[in-house]
Design a protein around this nucleic acid. Structure first.
Lengths: 68, 68
DNA sequence: TCCAATTCGGGTAATTTGGGCG
DNA sequence: GATGTCCAAATTACCCGAATTG
């Protein structure tokens, strides 16, 4: 194997754990276009780790700003 | 020339990394005819890099859905 | 030929999907 | 409008031993 995985992909369950929400909610975010998603040929969603992390960091930043 | 240098072949493990799935799943895609596969004399599957990339690109959309 | 890693096969859990409800 | 939960069906993940790969 000599493939360079330029972008890590996350499963709905993994993203759900990161945000502490139900996987169904992550699915809704994808359907609403709030998060870009890749579908496997079987129809399951995969999310870009960079995009998810950025969004998470964004929300975290807003939270601290609000609470401050 | 008879040998096409663009005829790069990928192993099930490499394709699995690209889609963030189990190599076994890639095998199922091949068996189901979702992806074209080539068999080695020993029975192992190989996938065309161009075909896999195209498939991945097709399923990668919906990242920028803002206007309708 | 030997060896480490991968990929066969099958079989069985776990996850994901989609719709509808509160 | 946004989440979480229930349901059935589909897809995917992990288990094994044996074979292929390089």
């Amino acid at each position: 194997m000599t493939i360079e995985s330029s972008e890590r992909l996350l499963t709905p369950g993994e993203v759900a754990l990161m945000f502490r929400v139900d996987p169904k909610t992550v699915t809704r975010w994808a359907s609403a276009g709030r998060i870009g998603s890749i579908r496997t040929p079987g129809g399951h969603r995969r999310f870009r780790e960079s995009e998810v992390s950025a969004l998470l960091a964004d929300l975290t930043m807003e939270a601290s700003r609000t609470s401050a």
